[in-house]
């Protein structure tokens, strides 16, 4: 696949968390607003890009028996870097995302890509893969966050946009709402892809 295709596949074909059903924990927990979703997505993308890059660069040197352990050390290091940087320069976001920042290290997306792609492909392709999937994830989180924010607090990106007298569905901001919203979005996307299949096939 060309580099460009490696990148774009992350935006639809293997879009997390919808097509590539991984990374659900942060998806459900932090998407209470669009900004939070985007912040989480960007932090995850940062780790994904660098872990993919380094795993790819080192792939010939790491003996297979210790590869998972090595991947974990590499991924965890970048997660700590993200933690420190966010604490120093993005404190508000850091406090909001809370425990889910260190949890990036067990985000199945990152370990999954390291194992399935970066350990078998060159650095440039791995970089593109990381960027594409990371961006796809960020966009998904942002959209889900916006939907929940719109229905749950009547605002978008912090600005109240619904008509006054609009009773917010606070259900959307609570755990059950997260599950249901994601489920409905997923069903919607399945509909789109089966429609595409019928058209193309």
């Amino acid at each position: 696949m060309s580099i460009k295709e490696e990148f774009t596949k992350g935006l639809w074909k293997t879009l997390p968390p919808f097509r590539l059903v991984l990374g659900l924990c942060p998806t459900l927990a932090v998407t209470t607003t669009g900004i939070n979703g985007m912040g989480m997505g960007l932090a995850t993308t940062f780790v994904l890009i660098f872990s993919n890059l380094f795993v790819s660069l080192l792939r010939k040197l790491i003996p297979p028996q210790v590869r998972i352990a090595s991947f974990i050390v590499i991924i965890a290091s970048f997660v700590v870097i993200v933690e420190l940087i966010m604490q120093a320069y993005f404190y508000q976001l850091f406090k909001v995302l809370g425990i889910f920042i260190p949890l990036i290290v067990v985000n199945c997306i990152i370990l999954g890509r390291a194992e399935a792609f970066a350990s078998r492909n060159g650095p440039l392709a791995s970089l593109a893969d990381g960027l594409g999937i990371g961006f796809g994830f960020t966009i998904s989180l942002f959209v889900l966050g916006c939907i929940r924010e719109l229905l749950g607090s009547g605002s978008l990106l912090g600005v109240a946009v619904m008509w006054s007298g609009f009773e917010p569905f606070t259900f959307m901001l609570k755990p059950p709402g997260a599950f249901v919203a994601l489920g409905i979005l997923l069903a919607f996307m399945n509909l789109i892809s089966s429609y595409q299949e019928r058209k193309g096939g």
Binding site: V21, F171, K174, P175, P176, G177, A178, F179, V180, L182, G183, I184, L186, A187, F188, N190, L191, S194
Partner: peptide, 23 residues
């Protein structure tokens, strides 16, 4: 189950309803 909901989607909605119960 409607095709679009099969698998993970209906699983999520089920989880949501149980979460509602737990709330």
């Amino acid at each position: 189950i409607p095709r679009a909901f099969e698998g993970t989607a209906i699983g999520l909605i089920t989880a949501g309803l149980i979460a509602l119960a737990f709330s």
